[in-house]
Simulated assay, not measured.
Amino acid sequence: MAETLDQVASPELTKPRHVVRKFQARPQHEGVGAVVRRSIGRFELKYFDPFLALDEFSVTAPAGFPDHPHRGFETVTYMLEGAVTHEDFEGHKGTIKAGDLQWMTAGRGIVHSEMPAGPGTSKGLQLWVNLSSANKMIEPRYQEIQGKDIASTSKNGIAVRVIAGRSMGLQSPVYTRTPTMYLDFTLKPLAHLRQPVPPAWNAFVYTLEGEGVFGVERSGPVGPHHLLLLGQGDGLEVWNKSAKPVRFVLIGGEPLGEPVAQLGPFVMNTEEEIDRTVDDFQYYTNGFEKAEHWRSEAMVGFQV
């Protein structure tokens, strides 16, 4: 039976997790003129079961991520600044702003675009969560939550926004097919956090602002744009020993333990399934039928 966060809700940790690997995510170009800091899904770390990619993105119009397909996983877009407009071949369209969340299940197939809305630079995080073989070909689905509706609280100098999972007595309404926790923490100076994580899950930290001490109190502080892979244990401890706030996300998930075959935006279990996916996309079949005649408004604008 899969573990749940309710089973590890106590703040008392018997075996805190240590940081076993750390590296800085450096900027690279992606999409059309966009800049991302990719920490999972690059040569140092191609896969961290069940996570396929994590990008901290920065995009200013007219740059962006025009029409592109997905199959076999979920994309989780969490806006930090600005806004992004999303549209797809099913007719779904909307704009997510700073603090908003979109949890998109691509399933058997989706073609969509993600473009900045309005002037200025839009920034956020996009996480790719793998789906089990049983869920890879389900129908696409969206869960969208405005920032004001994300469960949040603060206590003892610790503020948390519960994007998925549970923390500080709050439960996110987001349904995760692959059991996942996604927590946005801000620690004031001198604050000390103990956050449970199910022992069987993989977990990591991505730092956003300030300098925090993670895993072991005697460790050195870690600044922004770092990925910290956590070892075995039942939770994470964090200290803010600086004079400024520290912000980071703690993300964990239950490993699928299945083979991964990936070709760009297509993630299946075997190379044969990837070949079939390429054929489906090329010939507009088996979930990609609507892609043949659809172009996003953003793409039509590019072609004018």
Rank of each mutant, 00 (worst) to 15 (best):
Q24T: 14
I150F: 06
G210P: 01
P199I: 09
P50K: 07
F185N: 02
E237I: 02
T60P: 02
G233Y: 01
L250C: 12
G233V: 07
E144R: 09
K188V: 02
G118E: 08
A98Y: 04
T270D: 09
D184K: 05
V32I: 10
N286A: 14
V8W: 15
L187A: 00
M1G: 09
L236S: 04
M79G: 02
Q303K: 08
E12F: 15
G264E: 14
Q262M: 13
Y284F: 13
L230W: 13
I96R: 09
G287M: 10
G64F: 08
I158N: 02
Q232E: 14
E273L: 07
L101C: 11
F204I: 11
G252V: 12
S152M: 09
A9H: 14
P11V: 10
G264M: 09
S10H: 15
V84S: 02
E139K: 15
V111L: 13
V205F: 05
P69I: 07
E44W: 12
A117T: 00
V35F: 03
P259K: 14
E74F: 06
D275V: 11
T207F: 05
L127Q: 08
F281R: 04
D67E: 03
V19I: 15
E74W: 03
R247K: 12
S58F: 07
V111Q: 08
V35W: 05
T95M: 13
I138G: 08
V197S: 11
D88A: 05
N135M: 15
R108E: 08
H18L: 10
A191V: 09
D6C: 03
W103Y: 12
E209D: 12
E289Y: 11
E217C: 06
K97D: 00
E114F: 07
R17F: 11
K15P: 01
D67V: 00
P189V: 03
V238K: 01
V76W: 13
V278T: 01
G235D: 09
Y206R: 11
L229T: 13
S10M: 15
Q282M: 08
V197M: 11
A53M: 10
V162G: 03
P16Q: 10
I163K: 00
G120T: 00
P198S: 12
S219R: 03
D88G: 05
Q195Y: 15
H86M: 07
L131V: 08
H293Q: 12
P119C: 01
E211G: 00
R141K: 14
S219T: 03
P198R: 15
P69N: 07
D67N: 06
S154Q: 14
V36Q: 04
R21V: 03
A117K: 12
Q195M: 10
D184G: 07
A159P: 02
N202R: 09
L131W: 08
S58H: 04
N286W: 04
T75R: 09
E292D: 10
R17G: 02
K22M: 12
S133T: 14
A200S: 13
F73R: 10
P255H: 13
T14G: 08
E217I: 06
P50S: 11
T75G: 03
R108D: 00
R38Y: 11
G72I: 12
L54H: 09
F65H: 00
Q143G: 01
V36N: 03
I251K: 08
D49S: 11
D67R: 06
E273M: 05
V59A: 10
P16Y: 07
V19S: 05
D6A: 13
G169I: 09
L236I: 10
H192P: 00
N130S: 11
L5R: 14
E90F: 15
H92R: 15
P27A: 09
P255T: 15
